[in-house]
Design a protein around this nucleic acid. Structure first.
Ligand code: SF4
Ligand code: SF4
Lengths: 137, 137
DNA sequence: ATAATATACTACAAAAGAGTAGTAATTATA
DNA sequence: TATAATTACTACTCTTTTGTAGTATATTAT
């Protein structure tokens, strides 16, 4: 009942890029600031670049920055870029079809939490995430 | 953002045992009825027996049945028996300490879904799960 | 040009989760 | 007692996720 490590990393990195968006940041800086495994990060960032969430510029003075306005990057976009997107549509008991007309035993209990999670994912943008600049990343 | 397979299996098996509690059931029956991998199930059931959720009787005519009243087996008990218990207490961004006084960036957005999930886990018993006998297992 | 500093790519390794195989031990019943 | 049906145990395999290593390639300040 949690995000994958990769998802955690992605959210934290993107939030960091937004919080310090006056300039771009190298993978090495992100690695140090957020204490994430360096090599793993390079792969992840390459992926996020491909998916159009991040801009990368190479060479000396290069680095990474957000490709889109932080108001237009929602948590669900991040999950989708990583491939964990429709996880939350899966039936909580593992059935293929998540069908309210043929519900699983946990249906009634799961509907509300599921709704809230979905709301959180679809309405939380990177920008809204950082209203309070005192929070941990 | 989901349960582990093992957790799914455990919930479904225990729910089945409750739904058909007039008798005990062999692993083979559970395997066929719920379409779960046989050998994997034997391991899981042995574990649930050790944890005191299930009674096992060996030999011919043996089988498995709930060890406690279904009204007293909550989802959180099942998670705990499997070792996924406090997963939902973990910080959603992966930090060790989940401390509201030193919150992570997702804190405000995560609090409500988290609460609902916790409520679901602590208040849903096997018995309440099967009010409606028409649901999938 | 050159050196420094970046990202990009390929391949592999380690760890955890999920699943399989074979056998031993137990027990009701014929 | 012999047999069949059952759980219990040990060890292995497969797959996915997570993490590491080394190298190639691009860019820019000097
Ligand atoms: S509880 Fe019902 S609606 Fe919810 S995921 Fe399972 S089958 Fe789908
Ligand atoms: S969001 Fe805040 S309270 Fe929730 S898990 Fe993360 S640190 Fe803990």
């Amino acid at each position: 009942m949690h995000f994958s490590k990769t998802t955690e990393y992605a959210i934290r990195v993107l939030a960091y890029l937004h919080r310090h968006d006056e300039t771009s940041h190298s993978v090495n800086v992100l690695h140090q600031e957020l204490d994430l495994p360096y090599k793993y990060l390079t792969k992840l960032m390459t992926e996020l670049v491909k998916k159009g969430l991040v801009n990368a510029s190479r060479g000396r003075e290069g680095g990474l920055s957000l490709a889109r306005d932080a108001h237009e990057i929602y948590l669900c976009d991040i999950l989708e870029a990583i491939g964990e997107s429709m996880e939350h549509e899966r039936c909580i008991l593992g059935f293929e079809k998540c069908d309210a007309s043929n519900p699983c035993a946990l249906h009634d209990q799961w509907v509300k939490p599921k709704e809230l999670i979905e709301t959180m994912l679809t309405t939380t943008s990177l920008a809204s995430l950082l209203q309070n600049r005192e929070t941990k990343l």
